[in-house]
């Protein structure tokens, strides 16, 4: 085995392992996250990056042939199409009226959604949690 072949194989295996790690991490996030939007946050980036890395690994393994050009077209199309479809799904869900998930109780932040911004709402900024949301009041 020549040195060039060995370097190519090592690079291929490393990129494949990193790509599989990203895809598995995206899958775990897709199952474990509590909300639709956060699940989309997990899958939309991790799958695109993992797929791009794995296809780059297979391009390096295949060498400069016609097959590699085909896989390059496939990767370029996926890097364009996958964020577009993710954006389309998120916009459709937002237009339908799906509410984003919040980690605290809804009655504490009910005055955030009204948007009238009374002065007594700013009185509870010393609780710490409301302090970080005080930027949305004004």
């Amino acid at each position: 085995m020549s040195d060039t072949t060995m370097i190519t194989n090592i690079l291929t295996v490393m990129l494949l392992l990193v790509g599989v790690f990203f895809m598995l991490a995206g899958t775990i996030g897709f199952v474990r996250f509590p909300d639709f939007y956060s699940r989309m946050h997990a899958t939309g980036k991790c799958d695109t990056l993992g797929e791009g890395l794995m296809l780059v690994a297979l391009i390096i393994y295949g060498g400069a042939t016609f097959i590699s050009v085909k896989i390059l077209f496939l990767m370029a199309f996926i890097l364009l199409a996958n964020p577009t479809s993710t954006h389309a799904i998120a916009k459709a869900a937002y237009d339908v009226g799906l509410e984003p998930w919040r980690s605290f109780d809804s009655e504490e932040v009910a005055w955030l959604n009204t948007g009238d911004g009374d002065t007594d709402n700013t009185g509870n900024t010393d609780e710490g949690r409301a302090g970080e949301d005080s930027g949305e009041v004004q």
Partner: peptide, 28 residues
């Protein structure tokens, strides 16, 4: 594992994402 979320997931949008994710994995 993604198919679990596609079957179980509440609402139609989780299923659409599940189909999209499984299709992306199928290409690789």
């Amino acid at each position: 594992v993604s198919l679990y979320r596609g079957i179980e997931g509440p609402g139609i949008f989780n299923r659409i994402i599940a189909v999209n994710v499984i299709g992306t994995k199928t290409i690789v």
